[in-house]
Simulated assay, not measured.
Amino acid sequence: MALTFTLDPAVDPALRDGVLDLWADVSNAGGSVGFVPPVSRDAIRPELVKHLVAMAEGRTRLLVGHDTDGHVAATAFLTFNTHRLMKHWVWLYTVMVHPSHQGKGYGRDLLDAAAQAARTFDGIGAIRLTCRGGQGLERFYGSCGYKEVGRIPDAIRVAPDDLRDDVIMLLPLD
């Protein structure tokens, strides 16, 4: 069963709570979405609010995947670049698939839906994202057409003795 993707869904308490729950579940399962486990919904909430504010200001678009039960099962935020010389590509942030749905191809479906959405944005020719090294994410994104275009060694401190590379990936939309 596939997910149903919606770009720019109406943000109501159910959606907000669904994204918050997804973010906590993904983080606590070890996902690389800005936190390390254990993390609470309360710790994540300020980051979600930042995304919601950016959406309200028109700087960010939300792509949500719902499962057959109507639960938020996947998300990605597409953020427009504000630098005048870099407005031809968007950032992809907070790419998440619920742990109970991983291994079903939904991550690939989410990235395909994000690329389809970005192609509808005026003047956008590429998607750029960063990922945490050391977890195989580069291989996954590479298998979805993204190319590694840069790497900053030891840029992410997961723990005092655990530094990871910040890997920059790009997907041309041509």
Rank of each mutant, 00 (worst) to 15 (best):
L7P: 08
D8N: 15
P9E: 02
P9Q: 00
V11E: 08
V11Y: 00
V11M: 10
V11T: 11
D12E: 10
D12W: 04
D12V: 08
P13E: 11
L15R: 12
R16N: 07
G18M: 08
G18N: 09
G18H: 10
V19S: 09
V19R: 10
L20K: 11
L20Q: 12
D21H: 14
W23H: 14
A24W: 04
S27N: 06
S27K: 05
A29L: 07
V33R: 07
G34T: 03
F35W: 04
F35Y: 05
V36Y: 00
V36E: 01
V36D: 00
V36W: 00
P37N: 00
V39D: 01
V39N: 01
V39K: 00
S40Q: 02
R41G: 11
A43G: 02
I44S: 08
P46N: 06
K50Q: 11
H51K: 10
L52W: 04
A54V: 01
M55Q: 11
A56Q: 11
E57K: 08
E57W: 02
R59M: 08
R59K: 15
T60Y: 00
T60A: 04
R61P: 02
L62S: 01
L63P: 04
V64G: 06
G65P: 09
G65H: 06
H66N: 05
H66K: 09
H66M: 01
D67L: 03
D67M: 05
G70L: 01
G70V: 02
H71G: 12
A74F: 02
T79F: 00
F80Q: 15
F80K: 15
T82P: 09
H83Y: 08
H83R: 13
H83N: 13
L85P: 03
L85A: 15
W89D: 07
T94N: 15
T94C: 13
V95S: 12
M96T: 12
M96F: 13
V97Q: 10
V97D: 09
P99C: 13
H101Q: 14
H101F: 13
H101A: 15
G105K: 00
G105D: 01
G107H: 00
D109Q: 14
D109N: 07
L110K: 05
L110H: 03
L111Q: 09
D112H: 08
A114G: 06
A114D: 02
Q116K: 13
A117N: 07
A118G: 09
R119E: 01
R119Y: 06
R119P: 10
T120N: 02
D122I: 06
I124D: 04
I127W: 06
T130N: 09
C131M: 10
C131Y: 03
G133E: 06
Q135H: 15
E138R: 14
R139Q: 14
F140N: 05
Y141A: 04
G142L: 03
G142D: 02
G142R: 08
S143A: 15
C144Y: 04
Y146G: 07
Y146V: 05
V149W: 05
V149P: 08
G150M: 07
G150Q: 05
D154M: 04
V158N: 10
V158D: 12
A159W: 03
A159N: 07
P160D: 10
P160A: 11
D161M: 05
L163N: 07
D166A: 08
D166Q: 09
V167Q: 02
V167G: 04
I168C: 07
L171F: 09
L171P: 13
L173K: 11
L173H: 12
